[in-house]
Amino acid sequence: GIPATNLSRVAGLEKQLAIELKVKQGAENMIQTYSNGSTKDRKLLLTAQQMLQDSKTKIDIIRMQLRRALQ
């Protein structure tokens, strides 16, 4: 079985993952909103794209940590 310490770690990672998935969803929504907007929305679009990139990276890292914890 999986050690108890790993189980609480997994629960924490799953919570983090859920949050990051919401951030990713929000960033994707912002990108959709701003991509057909005016030029003043360009900065917001770039910010949203950066957020999305960061979020995807975090999600990958969390998933990797989850896999390790579940081994």
Rank of each mutant, 00 (worst) to 15 (best):
G1P: 10
G1D: 10
G1N: 11
I2P: 08
I2V: 12
I2K: 11
P3S: 06
P3F: 05
P3M: 06
P3H: 11
A4Y: 01
A4E: 13
T5L: 12
N6M: 08
N6P: 06
L7W: 02
L7A: 14
L7P: 12
L7C: 15
S8T: 09
S8H: 10
S8D: 13
S8P: 06
R9T: 12
R9D: 09
V10S: 02
V10P: 01
V10R: 04
V10E: 01
A11L: 10
A11G: 04
A11C: 15
A11K: 10
L13Q: 00
L13K: 00
L13R: 00
E14V: 15
E14A: 14
E14H: 12
E14T: 13
E14P: 01
K15I: 08
K15H: 07
Q16D: 04
Q16H: 03
Q16A: 12
A18F: 07
A18S: 06
A18G: 04
A18H: 05
E20Y: 14
E20N: 03
E20H: 07
E20F: 11
E20M: 14
E20K: 02
L21Q: 04
L21S: 02
L21H: 02
L21R: 03
K22A: 10
K22G: 05
K22L: 12
K22N: 05
V23M: 05
K24W: 06
K24P: 00
K24G: 01
Q25A: 10
Q25W: 07
G26P: 00
G26T: 15
G26N: 15
G26F: 15
G26Q: 15
G26S: 14
G26A: 13
A27L: 14
E28W: 07
E28G: 01
N29Y: 11
M30V: 05
M30Q: 04
M30Y: 03
I31P: 00
Q32Y: 10
Q32M: 09
Q32C: 13
T33H: 12
Y34G: 02
Y34D: 01
S35E: 10
S35N: 11
S35V: 09
N36T: 12
N36A: 08
N36G: 06
N36L: 05
N36I: 06
G37V: 05
G37S: 09
G37A: 07
G37P: 08
S38C: 12
T39K: 09
T39D: 11
T39L: 08
T39S: 10
K40P: 07
K40V: 10
D41Q: 04
D41E: 05
D41G: 03
D41Y: 05
R42C: 15
R42A: 14
K43Y: 07
K43C: 14
L44K: 11
L44M: 11
L44Y: 05
L45R: 02
L45D: 01
L45F: 06
L46P: 02
T47Q: 15
A48G: 02
A48Y: 09
A48D: 00
Q49P: 00
Q49A: 04
Q49I: 15
Q49C: 15
Q50R: 15
M51T: 06
M51A: 07
L52K: 02
Q53V: 09
Q53F: 07
D54H: 06
D54Y: 05
S55T: 09
S55L: 03
S55V: 13
K56V: 10
K56T: 11
K56E: 10
K56I: 15
K56R: 07
K56S: 07
T57Q: 12
T57N: 10
T57G: 05
K58L: 04
K58F: 02
K58C: 06
K58E: 02
K58W: 03
K58Q: 05
I59E: 01
I59C: 02
D60M: 14
D60E: 13
D60C: 15
I62W: 01
I62N: 00
I62R: 00
R63M: 13
R63T: 05
M64R: 12
M64V: 06
M64N: 08
Q65N: 05
Q65I: 05
L66W: 01
L66T: 01
L66F: 01
L66N: 00
L66Y: 01
L66A: 00
L66I: 14
R67Y: 10
R68L: 14
R68T: 09
A69K: 02
A69N: 03
A69E: 08
A69Y: 08
L70H: 04
L70G: 05
L70W: 05
L70T: 04
